[in-house]
């Protein structure tokens, strides 16, 4: 289980996150939502060291996560940042191979086990036919899947994705959501920031709603709709709609 206990993040004298306490259930999908600037990305960035925790603690399966060596952290939790300016000029396989970095020795030589992990990660994201192609030659959706292959090759039980749908078209977003569900089915714990409330309400087991640098609520999507926190934070109306036996949400 991943636990945040009273986590604060400050830059200089400015408090970016305040008193964050959160428990992420193992094997679940947790979606973090909130208006722009509420601290969603900062919250996730505490996990890869980009945002420095100034107070509080983070535990992963009982271990003080922030005190673990960097490579040990990278073996237990993988993180896909949101912003990538340009696609790298390396092959899909080359990118996925980077995911094995935390496991390689000084010579950085890949063993059979590493190659298998890379191959199965590429297969998981359905890029086997494109594995020799340069990432820069792929579409936005394929590039995102290539990065996910890298993250999968890292073979961590906890996977963090910061706004994985950014810049993706509708079809690619659907593919990405399907992949996220597939990750959970494969036993992974997935934490992701989503901007699209509909996607978050549909895909998440747990919904973390943030506002003004704090967590407003942590609940199932159904509860979040029922208790009105979504409507309050996003200033909208949420109407559950039955679509072919599945509950979807109409946001107006």
């Amino acid at each position: 289980m991943l636990e945040f206990k009273n986590v604060n993040v400050s830059v200089g004298r400015t408090l970016i996150l305040e008193g964050i306490s959160l428990s992420v259930k193992t094997g679940s999908i947790t979606a973090v939502v909130g208006p722009n600037g509420c601290g969603k990305t900062t919250l996730l960035q505490t996990l890869n060291g980009t945002s420095k925790v100034t107070a509080g603690e983070i535990f992963l399966d009982g271990d003080d996560f922030l005190s673990l060596p960097v490579r040990e952290r990278a073996r237990r939790l993988s993180f896909l940042p949101q912003f990538r300016e340009t696609a790298p000029n390396i092959s899909v396989r080359g990118l996925a191979e980077h995911g094995r970095f935390p496991y390689l020795g000084f010579s950085r030589t890949m063993m059979e086990e590493d190659r298998k992990a890379v191959d199965s990660a590429i297969e998981f994201v359905s890029l086997k036919e494109q594995k020799r192609k340069l990432v820069s030659e792929l579409s936005g959706g394929q590039q995102q899947r290539a990065y996910m292959a890298m993250q999968l090759a890292q073979d961590c039980p906890v996977m963090v994705l910061d706004e994985p749908m950014n810049f993706l078209d509708f079809e690619s977003q659907r593919e990405m959501l399907a992949l996220v569900k597939k990750l959970k089915d494969g036993g992974k714990t997935v934490i992701l920031v989503l901007h699209d409330l509909n996607q978050a309400l549909t895909v998440a087991d747990e919904l973390v709603v943030m506002k003004d640098r704090k967590i407003e609520s942590v609940s199932t999507p159904e509860e979040a709709v029922k208790n009105g926190v979504i409507e309050r934070v996003f200033n909208c109306t949420v109407t559950p709609v039955d679509v072919s036996g599945m509950v979807q949400y109409l946001l107006t």
Binding site: T50, A74, R75, F79, G99, F101, P102, L104
Partner: peptide, 17 residues
Amino acid sequence: KALNLLGLGDGVARSLG
């Protein structure tokens, strides 16, 4: 290899350990 990771951006490189 480490230089390759830096080329992917600080965030990705850090996440890879």
